[in-house]
Design a protein around this nucleic acid. Structure first.
Lengths: 204, 204
DNA sequence: CATGCTAAGCGTACACTGTAAACATCGATT
DNA sequence: AATCGATGTTTACAGTGTACGCTTAGCATG
């Protein structure tokens, strides 16, 4: 099946163009998740999107560009997921950590791609840089708050990276199947974040 | 140039066969480092190794198998690097962290491949599982010692994973270009490990 | 020594990839 | 109505992993 029908005519408005770009991106992301990186090809995308093999190239110069768009989309969704925690009343570090892990949990293929080391450098894609910054800020805002509240001591930005790296490290080790058992993950996460909180606590 | 000359004859002993396997693996690793994942192909390897394109398939069933062999080799080298710290007199956690980071620093391409999330699961390759376990144990031995010495409190295995994930998280974020500036990396590492040590310290 | 057997390496071939280039086709603009 | 530029198609090419069958060399056996 080929998504919601789209007219075959030409000469779109900028909005239409953007919409088609996003549609392709969405279809591509779904296909990527379903088939894995190896099974994902431009031709397969075209088939799934109901167009000829070269059509997507009108919207993405290159396969790498398309993948970068998918990653940017992933970071935007991650930022949203963290945002939605912010909207809640309980604003504890634990919640944000949980939300982050939950995103990786529910979107493993996307998370993999977002942090895939063999993908080209972000710097080539301003959208991606923007989205990834946004997601990171979604995390580090809490660190800022805790520093300002005198709970943690140190450079907030630095501490933001520390927390991010620790939780990300756990996630990628799990994704790579390098952690012993999945049901221990909760413990690992709690231990790590707890230790960091204690170890970085402001001396009162 | 085609590595050290090897006779073109057939019917090798098991030792010769193993030697040739290792030679191919070494050449492949070097090529991989030089050309990057994208530029690395079985044909290029064959050219570099001075044999016909299909010859390496006598030693590795598949390209993935070959890459797995390279990764196993990487983990063995990592384990050695950690071992060499053990030989030194000062056995502090800091040394092992430094050695780990230094390995990633000096072998970025190899480290990338070793932890590349789009690589097939380790479980298919017993050698790789063995080597990676060995490297991990090289790290967690120190944690064990510290727990036994009453410096840290908790399940040693669990704590081993906590430290590993934290340092690995920092490294992959840097490899992905997601850390602000490289000269801050020292600070990040010190802050992270220091905080974990403090936060996991045994209450005396 | 002659003979077959087996493993090593070679060459060819196939299905598939990303994508360059030429062409067709339609909507909007002049 | 004529033109033009953007969109989509078709075709084509170079490069990939690898299946398959052939050749050859050294061994164990008659």
């Amino acid at each position: 099946m080929t998504e919601t029908e789209v007219r075959k005519t030409r000469a779109r408005s900028p909005e239409d163009r953007e919409a088609e770009r996003e549609r392709l991106c969405r279809v591509a992301a779904r296909l990527f998740v379903a088939e894995g990186e190896a099974g994902f090809s431009m031709r397969a995308l075209a088939a799934q999107a109901g167009c000829s093999p070269m059509a997507p190239y009108r919207y993405f110069e290159t396969k790498d560009d398309l993948l970068a768009a998918i990653r940017a989309r992933g970071f935007r969704r991650l930022a949203e997921a963290l945002e939605s925690v912010a909207a809640g009343d309980r604003r504890r570090a634990r919640d944000i950590g949980e939300a982050y892990v939950r995103f990786a949990d529910e979107n493993p293929a996307e998370y993999r791609l977002m942090f895939d080391l063999s993908q080209p450098d972000d710097a080539r894609y301003p959208d991606l840089v923007e989205a990834s910054q946004q997601a990171r800020l979604g995390m580090s805002r809490y660190v800022h708050e805790m520093v300002e509240a005198g709970v943690l001591a140190g450079d907030p930005e630095l501490l933001g990276y520390v927390f991010w790296a620790a939780i990300h490290g756990l996630i990628v080790l799990r994704l790579a199947g390098r952690l012993p058992r999945d049901h221990d993950f909760e413990t690992l996460r709690r231990t790590t974040l707890g230790a960091l909180m204690r170890g970085l606590r402001a001396p009162d």
